[in-house]
């Protein structure tokens, strides 16, 4: 997941869930189009995460189909049309669940890494 990735790595489920929670979190702060979401994730990660930007869109479509997001076409300041996404109330609930799940997953991975720690 970290670094420039042209393809998702070998663990697609964790990766997908991670991308989903970052999208939901980004949209909690502001309604955005896909490009803005990509920039926000990159910026928010301090430049560590540069995802294959197109992979955002299947994730956005899936989340929308699931009911966590809604979208509408709007005109940007430059006069171009873009699809803007926002969280639904279901999406806000989902965000809370996913953050909780991510934190537990992250802690579990930490424990494994810690257990195999120095000198292994």
């Amino acid at each position: 997941m970290p670094g420039k990735a042209s393809q998702p790595s070998s663990n697609p489920d964790i990766l997908q869930g991670t991308l989903d929670v970052m999208i939901l979190r980004t949209l909690q702060r502001a309604e955005s189009h896909g490009y803005a979401i990509a920039r926000a994730i990159e910026r928010g990660s301090g430049g560590v995460l540069t995802i294959e930007e197109g992979s955002l869109y299947p994730a956005l479509y899936r989340l929308q189909k699931r009911g966590d997001l809604a979208s509408e076409w709007r005109t940007t300041e430059t006069g171009r049309r873009a699809r803007f996404y926002k969280l639904t109330s279901a999406g806000r609930k989902r965000l809370v669940q996913e953050v909780d799940q991510w934190e537990r997953l992250s802690a579990a991975v930490q424990r494994v890494l810690g257990a195999q720690g120095a000198g292994a």
Binding site: H33, G54, Y57, R80, T88
Partner: peptide, 28 residues
């Protein structure tokens, strides 16, 4: 606002055009 959620109409040609436009915006 739920009306907006259903703005993804299941008209294949229209949907395809919208997807293409959305991706083209990002690329630009």
């Amino acid at each position: 606002m739920t009306r907006l959620f259903h703005s993804l109409r299941l008209d294949p040609a229209h949907t395809q055009r919208e997807i293409d436009e959305e991706l083209a915006f990002h690329l630009d």
